[in-house]
Design a protein around this nucleic acid. Structure first.
Lengths: 247, 247
DNA sequence: CGGATACCTTGACGTGCGTCAATTGCGGCG
DNA sequence: CGCCGCAATTGACGCACGTCAAGGTATCCG
């Protein structure tokens, strides 16, 4: 994930949708001048969150859409017994908070993994504007559908019984998403700990650690703590696609 | 899941949203007279699907919302190597097709598990009406958010390392959903095979079979092939909530 | 610079569940 | 009724991954 700039960029905070680099990926896509201004008026630019800060918490009613502008977040659910399940990692251009629009409160919590800036769009204001700007309504549904489709990747990954497959699938997915926002898809800066990654993958932390070591030994990855370089993408793809019964 | 009536009920096919038993759970919730008629006009009532029939297929562009009226479906993704991952089982009152609205085609396929009737709402028509009926737009977002939240249950279940926990979580979830549509939450008629259930849970079919036997022996369930009676709900809850490290 | 701490890695070991294989039971059909 | 075929169950066995434990290494802070 992108390294945050060490100091707060104040100009970044005042940026409008029209200037935003994420424009084509986000709600403004294919929305013109005056309509864009209308949208701009309901978009709240938040102070950056620091690592560990909470964006929203489970069961709290806070119907708003959040768009990650830089940095990264994790979302997670807390189980009755107390332990957590990490549901996703979210990088720039991705939406967070879609599960909290139903009025019954959020079904998961969201926390910054590093210094991250976001846009917040209160849901009631958004629907008002969307009702008046048909293109926006359409685009809103499209991005929601896109996030919905992305959610499906998680259970697909968890369905693999080979641990190596799971990690390979995750790394490829992250690589693809980085490409989508213009980053080098071979260079991954993991913003989550091994513990968090293991939890997301449904594995023990030791297993994840060993997998990184093995993939390094196999010359598929170049791993230095949280910096991962994909040395051999086809090999990684092969690991990701290896079916369970050819082990 | 509800048993389908043995013959096609023609009256059912002509039913309007106003008459539909699912009304409060579905899009019409809190929408009044003339607006409801407008909605009705864009809702297509499909001939019931027979067991095994496909509602939509991966990668096919078919932007429409489907609402299950009776029966049940499964959704699944096909992996490059050929095997599948079942992503969800959907009973009456639940939405299907949300991942296909982005215009890039569906990200999963949907297939009937038994004779099932559905409503189909072409997406472009729906957004037209939603733009004119603010309450509908709101409700549409709410039900989408509800389905989004439901999706999160799957990875939470898959994150459990104990197989028994996974099955217990699934059974409780199904029971809750049945209660939501007015069925007896203790009586489950599974419309999916053990194979399909095992795939959904990320387990081997033999494991699932053994789990049913064990839970029967523990007097938690009463299992007769696909008919499952929850004998001891608190015990089932305890199994579902047992954390991984207290095994 | 030194000590504390959190994070990660590596090794040794045990087990829960996957795999393989055989058996049972039900439903359909001649 | 009796045969067939698929779904489900049950048993035996092995291994991949979880668990426990020790050691290594970067970062922080006094």
């Amino acid at each position: 994930m992108a390294q945050p700039s060490p100091i707060v960029n104040l100009r970044e905070l005042r940026q409008s949708c029209a200037d935003c680099a994420l424009n084509p990926l986000c709600l403004p896509a294919s929305i013109g001048g005056s309509d864009l201004l209308r949208l701009d008026q309901v978009v709240k630019q938040r102070m950056p969150l620091e690592r560990g800060e909470i964006l929203f918490r489970e069961n709290v009613v806070h119907p708003a859409l959040f768009v990650v502008r830089s940095g990264s977040l994790k979302t997670y659910a807390t189980l009755p017994e107390g332990d957590v399940q990490i549901l996703g990692f979210h990088i720039a251009g991705e939406l967070v908070g879609l599960e909290g629009l139903s009025g019954n409160g959020h079904r998961c919590s969201a926390e910054a993994l590093e210094r991250s800036s976001l846009c917040e769009i209160p849901f009631d204001l958004l629907t008002d504007v969307a009702a008046k700007v048909p293109g926006l309504q359409q685009q809103l549904f499209r991005v929601m559908s896109r996030e919905f489709a992305r959610e499906l990747e998680h259970p697909v990954m968890m369905g693999r019984k080979q641990a190596m497959s799971r990690l390979a699938i995750f790394l490829r997915s992250l690589s693809d998403r980085l490409r989508g926002i213009g980053h080098d898809p071979r260079v991954l800066h993991l913003s989550m700990s091994r513990q968090e990654l293991a939890n997301y993958l449904g594995l023990a932390i030791e297993t994840v650690s060993r997998l990184f070591s093995r993939m390094q030994a196999m010359q598929v990855l170049d791993v230095d703590r949280r910096s991962v370089r994909i040395v051999d993408p086809p090999a990684l793809a092969a690991l990701a696609e290896k079916s369970d019964d050819e082990a």
